[in-house]
Design a protein around this nucleic acid. Structure first.
Length: 311
DNA sequence: AAGTGTCAAGTGGGA
DNA sequence: TCCCACTTGACACTT
């Protein structure tokens, strides 16, 4: 099992998603930003190895305007060596990485332009994982999309779009239950239609479900992952922020709730992404708890390799 | 240097 | 009819 956190490391003084405004686009700025982002990504991964945090979500903006037609810079070839080196580091240290393309990726939109831009974005993010030389266990995680007043029609459109995706995207795509529109059951229908694995979000399931108890829900989602092609199941973990709007993520992990969740999970291998505001701070506490209950081996006393220049 | 309005992209819910 | 949230701040203009 692995513990991870999304996109941002608050302990380091760098960002792996530095960008700029579309209005000030230039190839030079893309090159500058990608160089910075990949150097920072490498530092984050080294930090993660040192802290036994072996799961990380890479931010969508690692290549600014990565799927925008304005971006004609050949970043794939310019940074081929850097992508490959990061991929090697990921494999050598048994890390797992993923992407979560943002809310603009909607495969079931009635608008063909939106669907095409969504596919372009998936191809862009998937190509980064390809350039890193990572196998199909490195995933692209999306939601089912909108309902548009007719969920049946929306699910049908999703399936039709999925079937048109390039194989390289299909091999990585997973669909996550959301907190308002598409429940675990809805996602399982997509799985039954096209085989897409279901990424289970426990907090979304608490917000929107069909009465499945958490242990059962976890096992239903787990059954949609192919053990070797897809890897261990991925889970997004969070909990309700006390006193806040329903669906708001908690600021810092509540340890008793996490221990209870591990009880529900018991017996399943999973990589858990903590979608919690304070990032690696909570991930580190989760790591300690999992070591405490014997679900995680302690970090090796490894010396970080590569990039000796930065600290 | 500090303050702040706005940023590529979509959708639905709530004020 | 706006405004907000969403996996995540931070760019860039103004003073």
């Amino acid at each position: 099992m692995r513990i991870g956190y999304p996109c941002v490391n608050e302990s380091l003084d760098c960002t792996a998603t530095s960008t700029f405004r579309l209005a000030s686009y230039s190839d030079e700025r893309v090159e500058q930003a990608v160089a910075n982002n990949l150097a920072c990504l490498q530092r984050i991964l080294e930090y993660n190895v040192q802290h036994n945090l072996r799961f990380f979500r890479i931010g969508s903006g690692v290549v600014p305007f990565g799927s925008h037609p304005i971006n004609t810079f050949r970043w794939q070839t310019r940074f081929a060596a850097e992508f490959r080196a990061i991929g090697d580091y990921i494999k050598q240290n048994d890390l797992r990485v993923s992407f979560h393309p943002d809310q603009f990726v909607v495969l079931n939109s009635p608008d063909a332009g939106i669907v095409q831009r969504s596919i372009d974005e998936l191809v862009y993010q998937g190509s980064i994982l390809d350039l890193m030389g990572l196998d199909g266990t490195a995933k692209l995680q999306i939601h089912a999309g909108g309902v548009y007043g007719d969920k049946e029609a929306a699910l049908t459109r999703w399936i039709a779009t999925y079937r048109q995706l390039p194989d390289v995207v299909k091999a990585r795509l997973v669909v996550e239950n959301d907190d308002r529109l598409y429940s675990l059951q809805d996602c399982l229908r997509l799985h039954n239609a096209v085989g897409v694995p279901v990424l289970f979000d426990n907090f979304h399931h608490e917000c929107l479900n069909n009465g499945e108890p958490m242990p059962l829900a976890l096992r239903m989602a787990a059954a949609t992952w192919h053990p070797t092609l897809d890897g261990p199941i991925m889970i997004d973990y969070s909990s309700q922020a006390p006193g806040e709007r329903r669906g708001k993520h908690v600021a810092s992990m509540e340890e008793d709730l996490f221990r209870r969740f591990l009880e529900d999970l018991r017996g399943l291998d999973a990589d858990i992404m903590l979608e919690i505001k304070d990032k690696e701070a909570s991930a580190h506490r989760a790591c300690m708890i999992m070591q405490d209950v014997g679900l995680l081996v302690r970090a090796a006393q490894s010396v970080p390799s590569g990039n000796p220049a930065v600290s």
